[in-house]
Design a protein around this nucleic acid. Structure first.
Lengths: 328, 328
DNA sequence: ATGAAAGCGCTAACAA
DNA sequence: TTGTTAGCGCTTTCAT
C-alpha cells in the first residue's frame, strides 16, 4: 500500500495523497504495527541494552545518554540487567537476539565464548561499553579502569602516602573493579609499597557499607593512610564514619572515590574522585550505532573517553565545586 | 511445525521428539524469532514503561522492581522517559502501542485526554503508578502524595514550628509535587499558619540546588523554622549549607526530605524523610500485570502502598539507621 | 501426538 | 508516483 510509503518515505508520495493519508491516519488513531513492520523488514527497531544492575546508580547516566539519542531516532531500548553474571548475560543475549535487533549494547569487555560467537556470527553492530579492550567484538566505547587504578595509586604515592588500601564490593565478579585493583597494585609494587591492603565485600554497594569497609580495614590495619574506594557512595560512608570517630581527613587518612557523583563535591570534607564520562558514553554509543545503521564510515572501532582525577579536600586538595548557584 | 510446540507447549509434544528438537536447536543456536511470533500471535511480549526521567534516581528502584519480575516471566521492558511532558507521553503511548504490547505502565495519574482514550479503547491492562487516583484508566498502584504533604505539615505543626516552608523543583509540571504542596498548604491553613512559603526552581534536582533553594528561602524569609524538601538530595544540600553557615539543625531550622534515600540515614545530622515503597511498587505492578495476563481475578484495581514518615535528627528525632553493619 | 494450510500486517521488489 | 505480488517466521486452526 501507498500508506506504508507515506509513513516511511514520505517524499516518494505526492504531497496531496500523503496529506490525505496522514490526516486519515490521525483521525483513526492509526499507528503502524511495529511488529509486523519489523518482521517484514527483517529486524525490529529495538536496541537491547545489557547492564550489570540498576541497583547502582552509576549506570543511570549512561542509560540516560542512550535515551536521549535512540528513541528520538526511532529505536526503543530493551533494558536487561545481568546482575554481573556472565552466564545470565549469555542467556539474555541469546534471547534478545530473537528480536532480530538492529544493534546491541553490552557492558564490559568480558563475555562468555558463546556470547562472542553468537554476536560475531550474527553480525549486527555491537558496542561494548564502560571498559576498554584491544579485542572488541565489534565496537568499543569506554575508558581504562586499569589506568584509573594506576593513576590513583600514583597519586596517593605522589602525596607521600605509604600504606595505601583499596576497598570495594564484588571485587571478583565485577571485572572493571578487578582491573582497577590490578593497575592499583602494580603501581604500589613499583613504588615498593605494600599492595595487599584490599578490603572486599560481596554486599551491594551503599553508604553504610562504606562505613563498614573502613571500620574493618582499620581494625585489621590501623595505620592505613589512604584508601581508594570502588565508588563514591562507599567513600562517602567512610567520610561519615571518620567524622563519627574523630579520624582526621586527610591528615590521618586520605580518601578517594570513583565516578565523581554529585555527593563528592558536596560532602564535608569534599571527596577526591575520578570523574568518568558516563553520560557522554551513552550518547556516543548511541551515535556510533546510528551511524553504522546508516552505513556511514566509522573511523575507529574503539573510543577511549578517558577519565579525570578530581582532587578535593579528602586528599589534601582544595574545596571544589562547592557553593550555591543562583536559583533560577 | 512441531518445533513451535516444543518451545511453547512442551507437554503437547512427545518427550522423545521434544528432546530431539531442543537439542538440535541448542546445536544450531536457534532462538525463536520473537517478532514473527509476536506478529502471529497478535502482540509482542513487551511492556512499555513510561517514567518521567532517569535523571532523578527515584525511578530506579521502581524499574528495578519491574526488572526483577517481568523479564523472568518472558516480558521485555521498553523504557521511555517522558521528561514530565504530558504531550510527549501522549506521543510515546501512541507510538508504543504500535508494538501491540500486552500491557503498559504509566507514571502518575495525570494524562492527556487522548492518552486515556487510546488506552481505554485499546483495552490492554494498564497500570498507573506512583500516585493514587479514584479514576484509574485501568489499574493503579501507588500512594497518596497529597497525604504525604498533609502528614509532613501536621508533623511540623505538631513539633511547634510556625513558619513552615516547602522547597522543590518542577513544582508546576510534576503533578506529584503539586499534590504534596496542596496537602501541605491545606494543613498549614487549618492551623492558621502561613502557607505561602514555597520556594521553587525549574532546574533539575541536585544537592547543590538544595543549597541554593535554602539560601534563597532564607534570604526572602529569614525566620523560616522548618522546610519540607521535594526530595532527599535537595534536603541533603540544605543540610550541607546549614553546616557551612553555622545554622543549627533542628534548633534554628527543621528539615525533612522525601523518598528516604540512603543518604537520609547517613548524613549528619540524619535527615527526617518520607519512606516511599518504590521497589515494592515496581514488583507489585509487574505482578498485577502478570496476573491479568493469566486472566486471574484481581481483587482491587487500586492499591495504596502507603508511606512512612521516618523521624531523624533533622527534626529533633533520634539518630536512626546509622552504624556499621558487619562486613560480609 | 503430529502435520498442513492459512494468515498475522507489514515492506521489498517489481510492474504499470 | 502508485499499485501489485510475494513473503518475512511464526502460531493458529483444523485434519490426520
Amino acid at each position: 500500500m501507498t500508506v506504508s510509503r507515506a509513513f516511511n518515505k514520505p517524499d516518494l508520495v505526492s504531497p496531496e495523497l500523503r496529506e490525505r493519508i496522514l490526516s486519515a491516519a490521525a483521525q483513526l488513531n492509526y499507528v503502524q504495527n511495529r511488529v509486523a513492520s519489523g518482521l517484514a523488514s527483517g529486524g525490529a527497531p529495538v536496541i537491547p541494552v545489557l547492564i550489570p544492575t540498576l541497583h547502582h546508580s552509576v549506570y543511570v547516566p549512561f542509560l540516560d545518554g542512550l535515551c536521549s539519542v535512540l528513541p528520538p531516532a526511532g529505536f526503543e531500548i530493551l533494558l536487561s540487567p545481568t546482575e554481573y553474571l556472565i552466564d545470565r548475560e549469555e542467556e539474555l543475549v541469546s534471547a534478545l537476539l530473537g528480536w532480530n535487533p538492529k544493534g546491541l549494547i553490552l557492558s564490559g569487555t568480558e563475555h562468555s565464548r558463546k556470547t562472542r560467537t553468537l554476536l560475531k556470527r550474527n553480525g549486527i553492530p555491537v558496542v561494548e561499553v564502560m571498559d576498554l579492550t584491544s579485542d572488541p567484538i565489534d565496537m568499543n566505547v569506554g575508558f581504562s579502569h586499569y589506568q584509573v587504578g594506576r593513576e590513583v595509586a600514583e597519586f596517593f604515592a605522589g602525596i607521600g602516602r605509604k600504606r595505601i588500601a583499596y576497598a570495594g564490593t564484588l571485587t571478583e565478579i565485577d571485572f572493571r573493579s578487578v582491573r582497577r585493583i590490578t593497575g592499583f597494585q602494580e603501581v604500589l609494587k613499583d613504588h615498593a609499597l605494600p599492595h595487599h591492603l584490599i578490603q572486599r565485600s560481596n554486599e551491594p554497594s551503599s553508604i553504610s557499607l562504606g562505613r563498614a569497609l573502613l571500620t574493618e580495614l582499620l581494625r585489621q590495619h590501623p595505620n592505613v593512610d589512604a584508601v581508594f574506594f570502588a565508588n563514591d557512595d562507599l567513600a562517602a560512608g567512610a567520610i561519615f564514619e571518620c567524622a563519627k570517630r574523630g579520624i582526621k581527613i586527610p591528615d590521618d587518612i586520605a580518601i578517594a572515590g570513583f565516578n565523581d557523583q554529585e555527593i563528592a563535591a558536596e560532602i564535608q570534607p569534599s571527596l577526591t574522585s575520578v570523574s568518568t564520562p558516563r553520560l557522554k558514553m551513552g550518547r556516543l554509543t548511541a551515535e556510533k550505532l546510528l551511524r553504522r545503521f546508516r552505513g556511514e564510515y566509522e573511523p575507529s572501532n574503539s573510543e577511549d573517553l578517558g577519565f579525570e582525577l578530581i582532587e578535593r579536600e579528602s586528599t589534601g586538595g582544595r574545596a571544589h565545586g562547592v557553593g550555591s548557584p543562583p536559583v533560577a
